[in-house]
Write a protein that binds this DNA or RNA. Sequence first.
DNA 1: TGTTTTTCTGGCACCGGTTCCACAGCGCGC
DNA 2: GCGCGCTGTGGAACCGGTGCCAGAAAAACA
Lengths: 338, 338
Amino acid sequence: MSILADVARMAGVSKSTASRALSGRGYVSHDTRRRVETAAAELGYVVSSTAASLVTGRTRNVGVVIPYINRWYFAEVLEGIEKALIRSGYDLTLYRLSHDVDLRRRVFDYFLVRKRVDAVIAVTIALSPHEVQMLQALGKPLAGIGGRVAGIPSLSIDDLEVSRLATEHLISLGHKRIIHVGGDQTEQMDFQVHSRRYDGFREALERAGITVDDDFREAEFSVPGGYQVGLSLLGDPRTRPTAIFAGCDEIAIGIMIAARQLGISIPQDLSVIGIDDHPMAEMFGLTTLAQRPGSQGDRAVEFLIQQIEHADAPVPDEHVVLPTQLIVRQSTAARRDA
Amino acid sequence: MSILADVARMAGVSKSTASRALSGRGYVSHDTRRRVETAAAELGYVVSSTAASLVTGRTRNVGVVIPYINRWYFAEVLEGIEKALIRSGYDLTLYRLSHDVDLRRRVFDYFLVRKRVDAVIAVTIALSPHEVQMLQALGKPLAGIGGRVAGIPSLSIDDLEVSRLATEHLISLGHKRIIHVGGDQTEQMDFQVHSRRYDGFREALERAGITVDDDFREAEFSVPGGYQVGLSLLGDPRTRPTAIFAGCDEIAIGIMIAARQLGISIPQDLSVIGIDDHPMAEMFGLTTLAQRPGSQGDRAVEFLIQQIEHADAPVPDEHVVLPTQLIVRQSTAARRDA
DNA sequence: TGTTTTTCTGGCACCGGTTCCACAGCGCGC
DNA sequence: GCGCGCTGTGGAACCGGTGCCAGAAAAACA
């Protein structure tokens, strides 16, 4: 392993000149730069990012805190972030946060603080005021994806609006017995996405003057999660709704599979709508509200890099609402007996 | 932000003593240690990992090179790796490698080389001899998951054996018209998993003296990928096989959905077997060969940390073969007219 | 009690870059 | 001819720790 001093010696210049030549900062004559560059190439020299970080205080590394990897939405966000970061020459350090409170504390107190990252992206993790303060005290730009956090810029779809729209779609088709199959309402970690989706659903029902008792079922955000709930919910003909608004496409698909197994035809006997536009949505003919999680990651990165590289960059809007699109396929239709 | 010197001053000791007290290396009296610790706590001191890395040459950071995030197998491996690393106090830096050759070069030449990582795990990425050599020249332990690489230890299931077993299961049920729906045989990036699975399939057929012309269909490793191939393959009654060995469960499930749509009953008209034991496999009644990707990640980490922390650690076996298990569910059955 | 060994502590060099500062050379305007 | 600004370069301090070494103090041993 060769170090800068070797390169400088070989090129016949001082360390400082070599540094300037390679980093492109400050005055260096064209000729000298070339000599340094060829020396570096010949020696296979690569800067020690550690040494550089020590003095500049920059690591070219962004921390991502995320609760899941193996779920469509999160994996997409992560891919988007990764792509954008590598494009800009940044590393991505991944912290998966489970519900484990200890782990969470450890990640924030131990990992994120050690001057290892230049910025932090929290995906669907509601940072506590204390956590925000701690990271901001270190001068690290922050961004949230999936919901708002007081004091930091964030990106997300408008969950309330999306759910209302999904529900209104079902209502407009004449459905009255509508159930929302969504996530745990008391889950602490995230931005209350689940409860906001439920709230949007409720709002639409109320506006339409529809009252449904027993209007909610909890499911894990996965296909098997939706399947299980689907079986128990649809198995009993007395509780069976005519339409279901699922908290995400994975749940919706699980429900559709359960329905098929129970001989319930979609959309004749049951309409189903989801959120996401999961890659499987099309083949299942699932009506859904499409979002593009990858672009959320992408935009968060772009913004953070702005902050990192131009300390005087304009502080962005507190919250960016990303577009969604209703994609009507074959899983929703007018109520049969309507 | 306070630095070690502040802590030392506050505790009334020298920097070196403070360093020893906090890191736990070398002699420090009980009393002094306590004073240093309380001073550190009071100041909210956290070591600068950058500074520490510069002098020790250790970063407590492991690089993971992986081709996909949003596919079950990869996400599971990644989760396993992450969990194991955080448990041991290591960071995980993620590099997603697409087929883009330029990106690949950039990751290896620029990102991985800068003394940022203590070790590298390559998931399903066949490192070239040059890449291996380069990383080893830096003294970085390496490990591969998903296949063998000359000169570095690796973990994987025995793809050949697994495929043979899956195929033999179908043969033993009396099937003769068997097709393998798997991955692109010429894909460069990975460990020829695809071709090894095909080879195992072929081997089983040959041993049983079965000849099938047109015994392979290529599919993307995803549910929609399997679905698409399923539609075209099963749509034509003249080409329709009686059994399919899918390269992974996602493909298998896509095929099952296509079959259902075409009115082909499983297992009466068609047997399907996959590999993985994907979370959806159970609800689809899919017969499969189960593997546990998370534990592959886990074991790779354990081994690498050994290597990092005990330079004299025994060099492990070149290749560890991980167990798989045949789980027979309802998607395979004896050939109807047999 | 004297000597050796062990525990404890401070000083200082060092990791490998970046950057500030000083200085030299040069062109240009007055 | 002199002063000024710009370009180009080297010297040296510095980032924030770690760890070697020397020396003092305490403990163990003879």
